[in-house]
Design a protein around this nucleic acid. Structure first.
Length: 152
DNA sequence: GCCAACGTTGGC
DNA sequence: GCCAACGTTGGC
C-alpha cells in the first residue's frame, strides 16, 4: 500500500474539518505533478495530513484514500474558485480522489522535528524549494513520522 | 509582511 | 523553443 503526504492550509481545510466531514473530495489541486500523484492513489493508501502556512506547520494526523481519483467537479463550475475554462469536459484536466479521516495525532509533529530527523533527509516536503502539495512518502519515512508522533 | 523559490504564461 | 514577467506557495 502506497503512502503519501498531502498539504492543506488549516484556514481553508483542517484535519478537524475532515474529522467532522469524515470524507471529502480532495479537490482544488492545480499542479500537474500533484495531479499525477492524486491519480496514482489507490483505495486504502495512507495519507499524512500536513498543515501548512500556520503556526506551527507540521503533520497533524492520518487519512486514507476511500475512492480513486475521478474528474473533479469544480473545474467545470463557473461559479467555483477552482473553475478552469481551459479544461475540456471530454478530457478533464483535474482529478480528485475521495479521502477519509483516520485519526489525529495527540500532538502535531512540527516541521522542525521533521527536519531534525535523520531518517527524513529525503522527504520531498523538506527538499529545498519544494512546494508540492501532494507527494509520495516511503515506508521508512512514514514509520519515522509515526514514531515522532508518539505512535508505535 | 517579506521574500526566495517555483510553475505557468505569453511574446517573440 | 526560449525566457522574462507574473502569480503562487509557504516558511519565517
Amino acid at each position: 500500500m502506497a503512502k503519501w503526504l498531502i498539504k492543506s492550509e488549516p484556514d481553508s481545510y483542517s484535519i478537524d474539518d475532515l474529522q467532522r466531514d469524515k470524507k471529502t473530495r480532495w479537490d482544488g489541486v492545480r499542479n500537474y505533478q500533484a495531479r499525477n500523484y492524486l491519480k496514482a492513489m489507490a483505495v486504502g493508501d495512507e495519507l499524512l495530513f500536513y498543515h501548512s502556512s500556520c503556526d506551527p506547520a507540521g503533520v497533524v494526523g492520518l487519512a486514507k484514500v476511500t475512492k480513486r481519483a475521478a474528474p473533479e467537479e469544480a473545474q467545470f463550475d463557473r461559479s467555483s474558485h477552482y473553475y478552469d475554462p481551459d479544461s475540456p469536459k471530454d478530457a478533464p484536466r483535474w482529478f480528485a480522489p475521495e479521502i477519509g479521516y483516520v485519526r489525529s495525532f495527540r500532538s502535531i509533529v512540527p516541521l522542525a522535528a521533521l527536519r531534525a530527523n535523520s531518517a527524513l533527509v529525503d522527504l520531498v516536503l523538506l527538499k529545498r524549494g519544494s512546494r508540492l502539495s501532494v507527494h509520495p512518502v516511503s515506508d521508512k519515512e512514514f514509520a519515522a513520522i509515526l514514531k515522532l508522533a508518539g505512535e508505535k
